[in-house]
Design a protein around this nucleic acid. Sequence first.
RNA 1: UGGGUUAUGGUGUAACGGUAGCACUACAGAUUUUGAUUCUGUCUGUCUAGGUUCGAAUCCUGGUAACCCAACCA
Length: 553
Amino acid sequence: MSEEKTLNFLEEIVEADLASGKYASLLTRFPPEPNGYLHIGHSKAINVNFGLALKYGGETNLRFDDTNPVTEETEYVESIKEDIRWLGFTWARELYASDYFDDLYGYAVKLIEKGLAYVDDSSSEEIAAGKGTPTEPGKENKYRNRSIQENLQLFSDMKAGKYKDGEKVLRAKIDMASPNMLMRDPVIYRIKHAHHHRTGNKWCIYPMYDFAHGQSDSIENITHSICTLEFIPHRPLYDWFIEKLDIFPSHQYEFARLNMTYTVMSKRKLLQLVNEKHVNGWDDPRMPTISGFRRKGYTPGSIREFCEKIGVAKRENLIDLGLLEFCLREELNKTALRVMVVLDPVKLVIDNYEEGRTEELTSENGPDESMGTRTLPFSKTLWIEREDFMEVPAKKWFRLAPGAMVRLKSAYIIKCNSFIKDEQGYITEIHASYFPESKSGHEGSGNIQVKGTIHWVSAEHAATAEVRLYDRLFLSENPAAEEGDFKDHINPNSLQVIEKAYIEPSLKQATLNERFQFIRKGYFCLDPDSTENHLVFNRTVTLKDAWAKEVKK
RNA sequence: UGGGUUAUGGUGUAACGGUAGCACUACAGAUUUUGAUUCUGUCUGUCUAGGUUCGAAUCCUGGUAACCCAACCA
């Protein structure tokens, strides 16, 4: 079977540009604004930009688009860098749009000198009104015809701080009747007397996105400037500035951003979830942020694989969260250490097992023999999962029930003799007898056939831990598209905390970067909230559960 | 309603005028000391109406639908 992978449209463009000699090498950039945390949607953009460069032997710059001092903070710069590194990518240069403020100012002066920009004294409302609507052209105002000399002076005064915020702006002089609203004399510089996280108080005028992005690309000699679909209408402006300024011609290309089921992706909505305490911060494991996924136990490889699988195209999409989970399970299944943990315990007493006796049983750590084995203490009294016992077994029930037999994983086959209920009818204890000859790994262990195998922990030897079970944050597939407030669709049971789960003793040595499969229950990892005496585990993702489906039928 | 972008199974993505393929999901079966994994199989698709052509998802014409654009945000 040949592995002939077809190219996505960006790869086709790049290959054509390289083949034609338009560019000798490839240089892309990832340009986040440092005003929030990166989410899974950004990981697609990261994968596209870094992935393309990697594939074609080029480089990728990390450029912080920090042209708006009032929303941006150094804290975000650090988290963004950490997330990109964690995903496994390395940038060629760490740059900032603010590095180019002097150049950008010079470009603005050049535009004024060419009669292509003017200072406008209108209020923002007046400017908005003057732009018209998509169906009606805008109107040219009286400031549009100021002399070059006057504009130069005024712009210089703006820079010098002679005006207050909002008193004046610099606008490009393009076409107030353009069908593209963005070409109707866009504002390119505004006054903001604000402290900038890098340039401090040096500037009180700041360039707008459209006057910073393309030029920054050009200054860095970015060959392919890749962004999302909503910037398509900006492209004519992007090209206009490059042409009028006569600078290196970077080109903009657009792809469809990632949308995923059962979550929201807009920064505004994520901020709301954090601020209104629907989650416990940006790195809450229920958040679609990179830091949230990291804390939940996702691996960088699974996210990269997911980004590869979803492809790159120009059409709107809503990708099934199940695909991300598939990528995760695919990796974790190969690498996670198998351990036994009882989340919802009920006591199991082996009547014919000697009181006080303990055996060290051997169990495999994973599917691959190279992962080795460990020992597990076994004794008369065990904890098993409450849901693994049914007083009146359902049809096709393979687990424990009165008179039924199951195997205790890596141990013995047992047969249930009886069980005890309290006055409320709650089962408090199950009694069984074991078959010594059925011991795992020993001759004759397979003489008795059973359909079910369940996990267990020795009561005497078990340690305890808190376990946090996460479910999807929203009940709706596409909460942002629902009528009304997206928050009305929050899943009230997205977090279930188990205060006291019984864990096998080996788990006391768990470390933060290890991944575990709690056999039959899912994949888990240690949470940073853990202390030596209080371990906390997060459920990364469940296992597929064919029985749960059977029950639903 | 002016401009722009996009339409392929439930989802995502290929096929670049010549057999509609791949992955996820779903379903069925086999294996299994995890009802996991693994393996095998099955279902389901070219927005619509015309046209060009020996042949159209692909080219042309007309519809339709979805998304984006009227911040001194990015």
